[in-house]
Amino acid sequence: MSNFSISPETLRAQAQAAQDAGFIQLGENMRRAAELTRVPNERLLRMYELLRPGRSTQAELESVAQELSEKYDAPLTSAYVREAIQVYAERKLFR
């Protein structure tokens, strides 16, 4: 399976190309994607599930954010999840 995987370096280069052409958010998405290349399939699917509305407690999402920054060296995605935590708390979107 690994032989059709995109590398984080390639994703970052694509992110730069996108941002140079004015597609700022697409570039940010690709930078988060570069981080997520390190997360195994099943764990990635699970993280997505936990981010959906009413799926997790605040503590569960906080542990996802922590796991992203500590285990997978994914600071951008971790910050993205922390931002969601704040909004979910305000809008009552936790389980």
């Binding site: 994703l11 998405n29 994607a33 570069a34 997520l36 997360v39 993280m47 993205y80």
Partner: peptide, 9 residues
């Protein structure tokens, strides 16, 4: 947004 990044990854 996370899903979009997951696909791109």
């Amino acid at each position: 947004g996370f899903l979009a990044s997951a696909y791109a990854s």
